[in-house]
């Protein structure tokens, strides 16, 4: 129950952050990415604000703990490798982000607006995630990368 309540509150905080910061506006995201044009650096301040709050709390309060306040173990993504999958995945994500100006957080925060654009993006994103799941099981090869080999059972999200 505690974990569910914390989840709900943190989700509301996160969604509010996405809306207030302007991340939910693809025009703003694209203006931030358009460094050779009429550059709007605002969104740099989003990351700055987030890191200014998260980084000290993490290093001063969280890092030394082995359990969270609800008693659960603090578990990290075990994968430390910088490999072709990480690099390709990040590049593919970046291409998609630059193409429409949406990433997963803002899409969830905008869902209640009922926009068909958001719905379409979300549906397509879920299909993409499912496809990735199959790829990570070695179901089909990708250009350059081939078939995924060292398939580890799905790990904690990171």
């Amino acid at each position: 129950m505690f974990t569910i309540l914390v989840g709900l509150i943190c989700g509301a905080l996160f969604g509010s952050g996405m809306i207030i910061s302007g991340m939910v506006d693809p025009a703003k995201v694209i203006a931030f990415l358009n460094i050779s044009g009429d550059w709007d650096p605002s969104l740099m301040f989003v990351m700055g604000g987030a890191l200014a709050v998260f980084t000290p709390i993490y290093h001063l309060l969280i890092k030394k703990r082995s359990n969270a306040l609800n008693g659960e173990k603090l578990s990290w993504a075990s994968n430390k490798q910088i490999d072709a999958t990480l690099i390709t995945g990040s590049a593919i994500f970046g291409i998609g982000w630059g193409l429409a100006g949406f990433c997963p957080g803002p899409v969830m925060a905008s869902l209640g607006g009922g926009s068909s654009t958001i719905m379409m993006f979300l549906a397509s994103m879920l299909i993409g995630m499912t496809a990735a799941k199959y790829y990570l099981r070695g179901a089909f090869p990708l250009p350059f990368l081939g078939r995924y080999k060292n398939s580890i059972p799905s790990q904690a999200s990171k």
Partner: peptide, 21 residues
């Protein structure tokens, strides 16, 4: 507004991790 919104994102991430792991 970007800074304020960003701070909320950081707060949310920190609280979720500290309270629920």
């Amino acid at each position: 507004s970007a800074l304020a919104g960003g701070a909320l994102l950081g707060l949310s991430a920190a609280v979720l991790m500290l309270f629920s792991g």
